[in-house]
Computed example of a mutant assay.
Amino acid sequence: MNMTSRRGFIKSASTAALAATATPALAFQMPITGTPDPLPEWFRDWKRGTARWEGIPEETPEADQLLAENVDLENRICSTQATSREGVIAQLDLVLDGNSWTGGLMTEASDRVVFENIRAALVGGLV
């Protein structure tokens, strides 16, 4: 094998390896469609829940329920790819909000997921 064909082989092999590793990530992206993006409404629900939670005594069944609802909303907001500009803004607002678990207490893995989804939405052509 001469030097030119070795370089061509290495280049084509590395391109194939990149395509093989990139393809699984693309399979998890939500398609950009005309359906309403749920993220802005979920973020508004999360903000309302946070305001309610701050106004009730801790360690009560109501506080536990509100906390569980807000954790569920945060998880949905973090793990869903935005399909609108407003959805991307809602994800960023959650990350930047001082009351969110994402803003300080969530694991690095969940932080990575929300930023990967923000990136995927932007790369998908939303902005």
Results as ranks from 00 to 15, higher is better:
Gly87Met: 04
Val95Trp: 01
Trp46Thr: 14
Leu39Cys: 07
Ala20Ile: 05
Trp42Leu: 15
Trp101Ile: 14
Ala19Thr: 12
Ala25Val: 11
Leu26Ile: 13
Ala51Phe: 02
Ser14Pro: 01
Ala13Asp: 11
Asp64Gly: 05
Glu116Pro: 00
Thr21Gly: 03
Glu59Ala: 12
Val95Ser: 04
Asn2Gln: 05
Ile32Ser: 05
Phe115Ser: 10
Arg112Asp: 14
Trp101Glu: 15
Ala27His: 08
Glu41Asn: 06
Leu67Pro: 03
Arg119Trp: 04
Lys11Val: 14
Glu59Lys: 09
Thr15Gln: 13
Ser110Asp: 15
Ala13Arg: 09
Asn70Arg: 15
Asn99Leu: 09
Ala17Cys: 03
Leu39Val: 09
Gly87Ile: 04
Ile118Lys: 01
Gly124Ile: 11
Asp37Tyr: 01
Arg6Thr: 11
Thr33His: 02
Asp45Tyr: 00
Ala17Met: 06
Gly34Phe: 02
Thr50His: 04
Arg48Thr: 15
Asp45Lys: 10
Phe9Asp: 10
Ala22Gln: 14
Ser14Trp: 00
Ser12Phe: 00
Ser14Leu: 13
Gly55Lys: 09
Ser12Tyr: 00
Asp93Pro: 00
Leu73Cys: 12
Arg6Asp: 07
Glu86Met: 05
Ala20Thr: 11
Ser5Ala: 13
Thr50Phe: 02
Gln91Cys: 02
Leu96Gln: 12
Pro36Trp: 00
Glu59Tyr: 01
Thr35Gly: 07
Trp42Asn: 11
Asn70Gln: 15
Asp93Gln: 12
Val95Pro: 00
Val127Gln: 10
Asn70Ala: 10
Phe28Arg: 14
Leu122Gly: 09
Phe43Cys: 12
Ala90Cys: 09
Ala16Trp: 02
Gly34Asn: 14
Ala109Phe: 04
Ile32Cys: 03
Gly87Gln: 04
Ile89Phe: 03
Glu41Val: 08
Ala82Gly: 06
Arg52Glu: 15
Lys47Arg: 15
Leu96Val: 04
Leu92Thr: 10
Leu73Pro: 09
Ala68Thr: 13
Phe43Pro: 06
Glu74Asp: 12
Glu41Asp: 13
Ser100Phe: 04
